[in-house]
Nucleic acid binder design. Structure first.
Lengths: 210, 210
DNA sequence: TGTGCAAGTAAGTGACTACTTGCATTCAGG
DNA sequence: CCTGAATGCAAGTAGTCACTTACTTGCACA
């Protein structure tokens, strides 16, 4: 049904603006251009409506794939990071509301956690592929590295609006700066040497390629 | 006054469990062991009570100082990171609630943002001191590096409860693993080789000591 | 012994909450 | 043309919300 989708979208929008308690059935109905009673006819209760709405929006994830066989790490990881950060930025206010709801409505939190879980798994696999192909040193922990990059991206997406001065500028290059920084840390910053910030290291670090 | 403090503490506790709308005056009064009317006699309204409560709790920050003159980067930054992550972990649920409230109650968000702002400034200054003393390479951006470490710590503190499997183990060493990873990225991972997680690296990487 | 303040108690206000019921309207298909 | 499903509308229910008023109690101090 068309109506269902409209209501779900409206519910997600209102939730991301007002949170669970603030997302009243009246507001949702108004946003959907629908009578309040219709909500209950479709979904029975506010709880199931909001749960379904959240499941609906977490379907479409903005994560792009990382190649199974890395070729140009800086290019590939920058693109991935930029896609990921814009996914998070678009949804930042919903993510904040969802995070604050995990104690009282864990089901919502669980379905939202699939996105970062998948992102992290993808990223770990990619870093391991870098090791395997000899494109990175082998003496670092993928989970630690992945947590660093994901944390930087996540923190930037959540916090820049409130404390823009603590994050690197310009905002639209930040994700690729994090990615480049990470690759340099794992000794994979050769190839694609277009960025000036890694030029110096190039001279000295053939060190660990096994 | 003694009573004031008790009420403020109770309000902060209830807020961190239920969020702004869920923190009803009844619940706060109950938690404080005080009559509901007393809240209004002291603070006039729920809004000012909660604002005052948040200002009160953000006074005491668990951030320790970083030395102005770095001596042992790994040791110093690990200690700082561990103190910071346990500060965040203790307050994770309040932080989540506060973050979801920044749109509707910006004043609360603003006073909470002082902690990460100060942490970031301290960290940047420390990284710059590393550069100045020749303990790190000079071709990285301090803000980027700081955002990476703070992001990793923040993400870990917020997310481990819900998706423990994507973060490095053990949890109580994670902060120092992030710190060590960062220092290695900036070429400052020599000295203080007591931690096992960098033992392997020790053999091969004298590389960047300028 | 009397005064004044801090706090509790009880009751109530009007607005809002999720949710229900009953009935009128619209419109498509047989 | 009739039927039935989808929807709107008006009203109502029982509960909670922040907040107020009016009054009582207990204790310190003079």
């Amino acid at each position: 049904m068309d109506r269902r989708q409209e209501i779900l979208a409206a519910a997600a929008g209102v939730f991301s603006q007002y949170g669970f308690l603030g997302a009243t059935t009246r507001r949702i109905a108004e946003a959907a251009g629908v009578n309040e009673v219709t909500l209950f006819r479709y979904f029975g209760s506010k709880d199931t409506l909001l749960l379904e709405a959240m499941q609906h929006v977490t379907q479409a994830s903005g994560i792009i794939e990382l190649p199974a066989e890395p070729v140009d790490p800086v290019l590939e990881l920058s693109a991935w990071s930029e896609a990921f950060i814009s996914h998070l930025r678009l949804r930042s206010s919903m993510i904040r509301k969802t995070m604050s709801e995990i104690e009282e409505h864990p089901e919502i939190g669980i379905c939202a956690s699939h996105v970062p879980k998948r992102a992290s798994a993808d990223l770990c696999a990619y870093l391991d592929a870098l090791k395997r192909k000899g494109l990175a040193s082998e003496d670092f922990d993928s989970k630690t590295a992945a947590a660093m990059l994901m944390g930087a991206i996540f923190g930037d997406a959540m916090g820049r609006g409130m404390m823009g001065d603590i994050y690197p500028e310009p905002a639209d290059k930040a994700a690729s700066m994090y990615a480049t920084f990470l690759l340099r840390a794992v000794g994979a910053a050769k190839g694609s040497r277009t960025r000036s910030d890694i030029s110096k290291q190039g001279r000295e670090s053939k060190q660990l390629s096994t």
